[in-house]
Simulated scan of single mutants.
Amino acid sequence: MKNHLMCIPGSIITKQAFIEIQQINEETLEYGLKLSEKDIKTIIKTRNEALSSSGRVEFGGGIITKIISSFCDSPYILQHNYIETIDDLIETFYYYKNETMEEVSDDELINFMKEYFDNKCQGDLDLLRYKYLDKIAHNIKYGAIDYLNVDGDEEGDEEE
């Protein structure tokens, strides 16, 4: 049975996302980063696969452009690893949106990812995912009031 959740043709959504991502190149050029048309298509494909595997729906390229805007000034992203890193960040974002059970806003999650990617993780995506983002998901699932506190002691996080 085919899934009929959306009535809007995918090509319209893809075209809109493509245009939004293409426009972000103006901002990223300042940091020596540019996406080609092929790169943009790759990113959109990654986003579509991540949305599908996480059971999510998105219109336009809003999250992609937010991620690119937030991360383009990172000292750990250079042109040679730009597309791969953005792809990984997109997949990570959607995975942890589900894992945090919608308790963390899009902007809050992106800001946290950027802060830890640049500082504590020094560009290491595995460290970001498996230490810090897993900790947020754990904190939320176990009722921690300050779920973004991933550096504090684990004792008593649930009871403040």
Rank of each mutant, 00 (worst) to 15 (best):
G32K: 10
I43L: 15
L78W: 12
S70P: 02
R47H: 10
C72D: 01
I63E: 02
Q79C: 10
G55L: 06
Y76C: 07
I64Y: 05
A50N: 07
L78G: 12
R47V: 00
E30H: 14
G55Q: 08
I68F: 11
I43M: 07
L29V: 02
N48I: 00
G55M: 04
S52F: 11
P75F: 01
I44M: 13
R56D: 13
A50E: 03
I19E: 14
F71L: 07
N81Y: 07
K41V: 05
G32F: 13
I44D: 13
Q23N: 15
H80I: 03
T42V: 06
G60P: 05
E37P: 00
E37K: 06
T65W: 04
G55F: 06
Q23L: 13
I77F: 08
Y31A: 03
Q79V: 06
L78F: 14
Y31N: 10
I64Q: 07
L35Y: 00
V57M: 14
N81A: 05
P75G: 02
G61A: 10
S69C: 09
E26V: 02
T46P: 00
D73A: 11
N25I: 03
G55S: 06
R56C: 13
S36E: 13
K41N: 14
T65H: 05
Y76H: 15
V57T: 14
E26L: 14
T65L: 09
A50V: 02
N81I: 00
E30M: 10
N25Y: 14
K41H: 09
I43N: 01
L51F: 08
L51D: 09
E49Y: 10
L51A: 09
I19G: 01
I77V: 09
E20F: 08
G60D: 06
F59V: 12
L78R: 14
K45W: 07
L78C: 12
E26M: 11
L51K: 08
S54Q: 13
S74Q: 09
I43P: 00
L29E: 11
I24L: 01
